[in-house]
Design a protein around this nucleic acid. Structure first.
Ligand code: FES
Ligand code: FES
Lengths: 143, 143
DNA sequence: TCTATTTCAGACAAAAATGTCCGCTATTAT
DNA sequence: ATAATAGCGGACATTTTTGTCTGAAATAGA
């Protein structure tokens, strides 16, 4: 469904959202440890998220990453778009060059509905809600 | 969403379903041409589908591939499972080792719903219906 | 039987995704 | 100022996915 990069990116963003309420900025080392991901690789992904305007980064001691906007105004669709691009939202299920309802593939009719539901689900998955779940111990970022 | 292999596999199965009503078995060469896919690579995928019991194959002149069951009794979920495995149906959105509603990731609650809708959509996408769409010119396998 | 055709199996190759390393730059604290 | 810290950028390495090639095995038809 999502690339490894995207999975790490989402987990990182949720962890940052949950952490920064209390401790402010979060370091790469802390993030990689908490979401159980390879540190250097995660660093690359966080750079991407920073370039894409979802994170701010600060160098030096006490440096680290923080959300570019408040956690209530960032949703999963933005993160997926930033890391994996828009193919999941627009692409054809059967890999045709474009998804076009005027000249659809045989799966289009049923697939487009589910794809749109997925898009909506991602748009309505807000970072602060997910961070809340983490904090309350009802959800987890490792296993 | 799906791997290239899976996309080619689905397109091949739909083409075979549409073609074999009239001309019987379908050769790899014909399939690769009609679904616009690399021939040798497509051959590998058809071998997999044959091993997995979704296709029968026959060597020699007049040989080729045919559906192992009638097109009304094969759905997309089976093809996806045969080629890409069950991760799409069971896997965690955020890449945790397993998806477990007892110890869910922060995306689980909303994601599991959409994932189940996708599964249902694939299960109810039947090969003969899609082949019909192709024959009637309302859907297409290339672009 | 002989030949042409077609799938099968395995080795090989190229490209993309995933992951690591290292030196550089910016920043903080002493 | 200087040293220590943390992100940045680019090169490099590994693994997976995607794709190719070749020869063998099976089969139909002449
Ligand atoms: S054309 Fe294939 S999903 Fe729209
Ligand atoms: S635990 Fe992540 S989707 Fe179920």
């Amino acid at each position: 469904m999502f690339s490894k990069s995207c999975e790490y990116g989402i987990r990182a963003m949720i962890h940052i959202a949950q952490q920064q309420e209390t401790t402010g900025r979060v370091s790469l080392k802390d993030i990689a440890r908490e979401i159980d991901s390879p540190e250097a690789f995660t660093g690359k992904i966080l750079q991407t998220l920073t370039r894409e305007g979802l994170l701010n980064s600060l160098k030096g001691p006490t440096g680290g990453f923080e959300l570019a906007r408040e956690a209530g105004k960032i949703n999963l669709a933005e993160i997926v778009l930033a890391v994996d691009g828009d193919n999941l939202f627009n692409g054809c299920a059967l890999g045709l060059s474009t998804c076009d309802s005027e000249k659809p593939c045989p799966a289009h009719e049923k697939f487009a509905i589910v794809r749109d539901e997925l898009t909506l689900m991602l748009r309505t998955s807000i970072l602060d809600e997910m961070a809340m779940g983490l904090k309350n111990g009802v959800s987890f970022l490792t296993r």
